[in-house]
Amino acid sequence: MFAPEFDYYRAGSVAEARELLDAHPDSTVLAGGHSLIPILKLRLAAPAALIDIGRIDALRGIASDGSTIRIGALTTHAEIAASDLLKGKAAALPEAAGQIGDPAVRNRGTIGGNVAHADPASDLPAVLACLGAAFVIEGADGERRVSAPDFFQGLMTTAVGEDEILTGVELSEAGDGEASAYSKFAHPASRYAVIGTAAKVGLSDGVCTSARVVVGGLVPAPVRAGAVEQALVGQAVTTELIAEASRKVGDSLDDDDLLGDVYASAGYRKASAHAWVRGALSAAVARAG
C-alpha cells in the first residue's frame, strides 16, 4: 500500500516543530509512525506535510522527582515496558505497554504518538486515565497541562490543537498501599484491546481506601466505572467483593456509545467487560496488599 503524496520536514527542536506546523497548513506530527503510517497507507488521512519530531532527544526518557514521573512523548513502548521505576510506581503502565502489538512494534511505537492518535482500541488511554495522568502540551502560549477526561475528547480526537505538540505525560507515583494493574482482552491478530481495563486501588489493613477503574476498547474514549469504584471504597476487600463490584461496570457504559465490530459485538463486549475489570482489580489488590 502506498500513502498519498506528502511533504516532509524534520524538526530539531520543539520550537522548530511548532514553526513548521505554523508554516505548513494541514500538516501532521510524525513520531514513531506506528499509528500514523498505517492510516496514511489506508488513505484514511491525507495531510499535506509531515513534521517529523522523531529526533528531538529532549522528548525521550522517563524521570521522577520523587513524586511526579515525567515520560517524554517519544519514549517507546519497549522502554516503558522495561522501566523499573514505572514497574514499582505505576505498574499498570508498563504492564499495558508490554502488551502492545509485538516486540518490533514496541521498539518503534511511542507513548506520545499513541495517545495523540487516540484510537479507542489502544491500551494506553485507559491506563493513563486511571493513573490520573497530566498530558503536557506545548503551544504558542507555552506549556499547558490537560487531564485525561479533557484530553480524550472522543474517537481519535484529543485536546491537542493544530499548532500544538504533545511533549510528554506526567504521573503521580503510587503511594504506600497503592498499586495499579491492567487487564486486556486482546484481539488475536492485531493485539488491539477489544476490552482493556485499568484499575488503581489503595488498601489499608485490608480495607479499600481508594479505587479508580477505567475501561477502554469498547468505548470511543476511556470511561471511568464509578459504580465499581463506589462498591469498593470503605469495604474489606475479598474475592467475592471484587467480583460483585466488577459486575457494576455496565452501569457506567452508555449503550448508545458502545463500539462493536465483526469480531466482537457491542453487546458481547458489555456483557463480558466485568471479567476484565475483575482481572485488573484482583491484580492491583494483590500488588497493593
Partner: peptide, 21 residues
Amino acid sequence: SQCGSCTILLEGVSAKSCTCL
C-alpha cells in the same frame, strides 16, 4: 505491521520496515 515478514534490524533493534518511512 502484523505478519512480520518485513522485519529488519534498525540500529541493531528489530523493526517492521513496512511501517517506517
